[in-house]
Amino acid sequence: MLTQSRAPRYSPQDQLVWKVLFDRQTALLHRRAVPAFSAAVAQLGLRREAIPDLPTLSAEVFRLSGWQLVPVGQSLGPEVFFKYLAERQFPVMTRIRPMRDFDFSPEPDLFHDLFGHVPMLLDAHFAEFLHTLGQAAQALGHDDAVARRELWALYFFTAEFGLVLHDGKPHLYGAGLLSSAGEIHHCVNEATPRPAFSVETVRRTPVLGTRFQDQYFVLPSWEELADCAAELAGVLVPVPHRNAA
C-alpha cells in the first residue's frame, strides 16, 4: 500500500513563506517559463494570499487532467514514486521549507510540488510523459536497479530540471527550476552548459539532488517529451514485460 499523510495546518510563518516565494517566482518566470505553466497556474486559481487546500486542489486537478494529488510526509524513493505515477497520482510533500532554505530547498517541499509540479499536470504531453515513466518502471523487475536509475535520471533532467525550445528560445518547465530562484539564476547564467536533449546522454548523467545542476538539457520541442519516455522504456524494459504492461 502506498503511504500518504494528511496535510498539516500551516502557521502564519508558513503562509508568509508561500506568499513571498509565489511573488518572487512569478516575477522571475515572466517570459522564462513555458506558456503551459502560466496558463495552468491561472486555471487552477493558485494565488499568493494562501497555501491551497490540498483536497480542493486535487479535485480540480482531477477534473481537468484525470490526475490526483496525494499528500506525503516524507521523501519517496524512485520505486514508490513511480508507482504513484503509474496510477496517475502525484505525491505532494506537506512540509514547506523554512526561511533558511528560502532560495534553494535541498529536498522537495510543498512549494516545489504545488507551484512547480502540479500546474504542469494539466499539460497533456507532460502528464502522458509521467504516466509512461511510471508504467515503464512498473514493468521492471525488482533487481533492475540500473534500469530504474536510468528512468529516474530521465525524470530528473526533464520533470525536475528540464527546458524546452519555444519560439526559438529555451523555456523552463522543470519544477526544480520553476520553484527555485537560485536554480533559475544558475541555469540562465551564460557560463552554465545547456546542451541539446539526448536520451542516450541523459540516462547516463549523474543526478545531483543537493546542489545546483552542472548542466540543463533543452528539448527541441514539447511534443517530443512523451516520446523520450517511450524510447527509453523500449531500451530498458524486456518486450514481454512491455506487452504485459
Rank of each mutant, 00 (worst) to 15 (best):
residue 1 M to Q: 14
residue 2 L to V: 02
residue 3 T to L: 13
residue 3 T to E: 15
residue 4 Q to I: 02
residue 7 A to N: 00
residue 7 A to L: 03
residue 8 P to Y: 07
residue 8 P to N: 11
residue 9 R to S: 13
residue 9 R to G: 06
residue 10 Y to W: 09
residue 10 Y to G: 04
residue 12 P to W: 02
residue 12 P to D: 03
residue 16 L to I: 05
residue 17 V to E: 01
residue 19 K to N: 07
residue 19 K to E: 04
residue 19 K to M: 06
residue 20 V to Y: 11
residue 24 R to W: 02
residue 25 Q to P: 13
residue 25 Q to E: 15
residue 27 A to N: 03
residue 29 L to V: 13
residue 31 R to G: 00
residue 35 P to R: 10
residue 38 S to C: 02
residue 39 A to L: 05
residue 41 V to F: 09
residue 46 L to D: 12
residue 46 L to S: 04
residue 47 R to Y: 07
residue 50 A to R: 15
residue 53 D to G: 10
residue 54 L to C: 06
residue 55 P to M: 08
residue 55 P to L: 13
residue 56 T to E: 10
residue 59 A to W: 08
residue 59 A to Q: 10
residue 60 E to C: 07
residue 60 E to Y: 06
residue 61 V to K: 07
residue 61 V to C: 06
residue 61 V to S: 06
residue 69 L to P: 11
residue 71 P to Q: 08
residue 73 G to W: 00
residue 74 Q to M: 10
residue 75 S to N: 11
residue 75 S to Q: 15
residue 78 P to E: 03
residue 79 E to V: 09
residue 81 F to A: 01
residue 83 K to M: 08
residue 89 Q to S: 00
residue 90 F to H: 02
residue 93 M to C: 11
residue 93 M to H: 08
residue 96 I to L: 09
residue 97 R to V: 09
residue 98 P to Y: 07
residue 100 R to W: 02
residue 101 D to S: 11
residue 102 F to D: 10
residue 110 L to F: 13
residue 111 F to I: 13
residue 112 H to G: 07
residue 112 H to K: 08
residue 114 L to S: 04
residue 116 G to F: 06
residue 116 G to T: 08
residue 117 H to L: 07
residue 121 L to S: 12
residue 122 L to A: 11
residue 124 A to Y: 00
residue 125 H to M: 01
residue 128 E to R: 13
residue 128 E to M: 12
residue 130 L to K: 12
residue 130 L to H: 01
residue 131 H to W: 14
residue 133 L to P: 12
residue 134 G to V: 11
residue 139 A to D: 10
residue 141 G to S: 14
residue 144 D to I: 03
residue 145 A to W: 06
residue 146 V to Y: 10
residue 147 A to S: 11
residue 153 A to C: 10
residue 154 L to A: 01
residue 157 F to S: 01
residue 158 T to M: 02
residue 163 L to V: 07
residue 172 L to N: 00
residue 175 A to I: 10
residue 176 G to Q: 05
residue 177 L to Q: 11
residue 178 L to T: 03
residue 178 L to P: 05
residue 179 S to L: 02
residue 181 A to N: 02
residue 182 G to S: 12
residue 183 E to V: 04
residue 183 E to F: 04
residue 184 I to D: 00
residue 185 H to W: 04
residue 187 C to G: 01
residue 188 V to I: 15
residue 192 T to Y: 03
residue 192 T to K: 04
residue 192 T to V: 12
residue 192 T to N: 04
residue 195 P to K: 08
residue 195 P to I: 02
residue 196 A to D: 10
residue 197 F to H: 03
residue 198 S to R: 15
residue 201 T to D: 13
residue 204 R to Q: 13
residue 205 T to C: 13
residue 206 P to C: 07
residue 206 P to T: 10
residue 209 G to W: 00
residue 213 Q to W: 01
residue 214 D to I: 00
residue 217 F to N: 05
residue 220 P to Q: 09
residue 222 W to P: 06
residue 226 A to H: 05
residue 229 A to I: 03
residue 238 P to N: 02
